[in-house]
């Protein structure tokens, strides 16, 4: 690089004062070097990540493996309370996954099917629209991200999300290592020493494993589920007509939760 480190800090400091983002600092610092030092300049621009879950293949084992893979990697505690519950991916029945859709004559396999719900990473996300600090926003690749460093805990996003995909840290999540009744349920918490926990007072949710995607890996729920039932989960880029998820959606009938609200969910349920 044609610039010394002291100059980097000066530029970085100055650009912070001027309110420029981090990327701007890099651009001033070394135009062209940006791509070399990162593997995602404007992460996944043009992509539209989506997930398809085959309701026929989802069983208890798929559910427990997918949920625990996710929750252990992301250090999601078990707070043993429906009110304070934090969940990134969870099981739900047909009636409550698709409220208003059920009727008394719905087929038995659907009536008793189990669905795995997670953030829909909507293409038109109301949560991002309402956030007063841009603590939640949509990336160029469609992933709805959450910046826990910036969240003020106003919970407007939770009121705006029609899917109940967002959880709030009503208390310190790390209390599961201190409160005797919770310790047993959370042996080894935080499970993943390379991933942070959250602090009290911030909202959290599924990130489509953005940290793994950027390393070229796949979301953990999918990897875990497919180990149990091959093909139960498909993840891919909807903007690519040749992607496996697109060809799957061409072949199979799919449902999306509350599509009529116009948020354009990107999680599909194959029936």
């Amino acid at each position: 690089m044609g610039i010394d480190r002291r100059a980097f800090l000066k530029i970085a400091g100055l650009s912070t004062i001027l309110g420029l983002g981090g990327k701007a600092a890099f651009d001033i610092l070394a135009p062209g070097e940006l791509e070399a030092s990162t593997n995602a300049a404007s992460p996944g621009a043009g992509k539209r990540w989506a997930m398809a879950i085959d309701a026929r293949l989802v069983d208890d084992k798929v559910i427990s493996e997918a949920t625990s893979a996710c929750h252990r990697h992301h250090n999601v505690p078990d707070l043993d309370s429906a009110k304070e519950e934090i969940k990134w991916i969870w099981e739900e029945d047909y009636e409550h996954s698709f409220p208003g859709h059920q009727h008394e004559f719905v087929s038995d396999d659907i009536k008793h099917a189990k669905f795995l719900l997670l953030c829909n990473h909507c293409s038109n996300p109301p949560c991002c629209r309402v956030c007063p600090t841009k603590a939640t926003w949509q990336r160029a690749d469609g992933i709805v991200m959450m910046d826990p460093h910036r969240c003020i805990g106003c919970r407007f996003c939770m009121a705006a999300c029609p899917f109940g995909a967002r959880s709030f840290n009503w208390g310190d999540p790390r209390r599961v290592t201190r409160v005797p009744e919770l310790v047993a349920k959370n042996q080894g918490f935080p499970y993943n020493k390379d991933y942070p926990t959250r602090a009290k007072g911030v909202v959290e949710k599924c990130t489509f494993c953005v940290d793994l995607l950027e390393k070229g890996e796949q979301p953990l729920c999918m990897t875990a589920a497919n180990k149990v039932k091959k093909g139960s989960f498909t993840f891919g880029d909807l903007s690519d007509p040749e992607s496996p998820i697109r060809s799957l959606l061409r072949k199979r009938y799919s449902l999306r939760r509350k599509f009529e609200l116009g948020t354009n969910p990107n999680v599909f349920y194959l029936i």
Binding site: M1, D4, R5, L9, A12, G13, T16, G21, G22, K23, A25, F26, E33, L34, A36, S37, T38, N39, A40, A41, S42, P43, G44, W137, R139, M145, D147, H149, V210, D211, E214, K215
Partner: peptide
């Protein structure tokens, strides 16, 4: 200035998805 660097890192990682840094 380690805190400035860390602030820069957390911003570029979380918000811009730039996860790697090239040292001098």
């Amino acid at each position: 200035s380690h805190f400035k660097l860390l602030d820069e890192w957390r911003h570029t990682v979380v918000r811009d998805g730039q996860r790697y840094y090239k040292r001098a």
